[in-house]
Amino acid sequence: MTTNNEAILQVNDLHITFNTFSGKVHAVRGVQFDLRKGETLAIVGESGSGKSVTNKAIVGILSKNANIERGNIIYRGADLTQYSERQFTQIRGSKISMIFQDPMSSLNPIMKVGKQIMEALRVRNISKAEARQRAIELMIAVGIPDPEKRFEQYPFQFSGGMRQRIVIAIALACDPEVLICDEPTTALDVTIQAQILDLIKQIQKERDLSVIFITHDLGVVANVADRVAVMYAGKIVEYGTVDEIFYNPKHPYTWSLLVSMPDLDTSSSDELLVIPGTPPNMLYPPKGDAFAPRNRYAMRIDYEEDPPMYRVSDTHYAATWLLHPNAPKVEIPDVLKKRIAQQTERLVR
């Protein structure tokens, strides 16, 4: 849980585009959030919503054809968007670290696992013997049994879950403050996923890490997050505490996300409430609210002007015209209402 409100990382009005052969892709269009000390912020969205791009900008690993058009990323008083590659190497790994989705492709297949953990320490001028010692400690910390023996093995000798533990160990090697997890469990099985999530939570508590957790799986979000930001078409459309987002969502996109997948209580005779259509082509971002064409509650204004962020509570904001004082009153979908009621009922029991 959040211990204090000190923001250690702030992203302000960030706009990122990519130059492609067919034109400029507007991947991120005005993202704004802050990350507080010791909290887990989950960023949810479909593929192409700009969640990974935003976080790649934070660690400075955007591809060459990317341009940061506007906005800034403030970390400890410095603007990361202005950083040179040399400056980034000072903070990458030691201050802000990242773990990726596929544990196989983020490890070097022809290098012993132990050496890969040591590598992160060795570039910081730590002696070989000490680095080895630290690497083994890290392997113990991330729950790898028999670390002395595993140290000498190659990635292919590890299972998916164990590989992801190694990746986490590497990310933690230089004691970062901020850990960015980009879909760390998507490639894993449910039982392994639960173990890795537990590990990330445990490490976060032990080291007082601030975590940005990118995922599209709302079950995972409910498990790890303190606060949630929902992204659609390069913008954050709603953010709030995990309880606010799950039990009192305000944006129609969040509603649809919450009910679009069946849960264990969904009867097979019920149709799922789907979001019609497909996400917009970000080569030509639509005028007005990007979600409007897929939104069953869209009003004329949605096609003309982008909604501002409306305040729901001190911690909860949503960008939808439905929250405008003059907007017609729209109830959340019955399915969702029923589901939330069931969940609250279960809690009481």
């Binding site: 996923q193 639960a194 999530l197 409910a222 039990y247 997948m261 849960d263 969940q343």
Partner: peptide, 18 residues
């Protein structure tokens, strides 16, 4: 297997028993 399914319900997730 059933105890490992993540559900979109924060209360449930907090009290999850694996």
């Amino acid at each position: 297997l059933l105890s490992a399914i993540p559900l979109p319900d924060p209360h449930h997730e907090r009290n999850r028993k694996r």
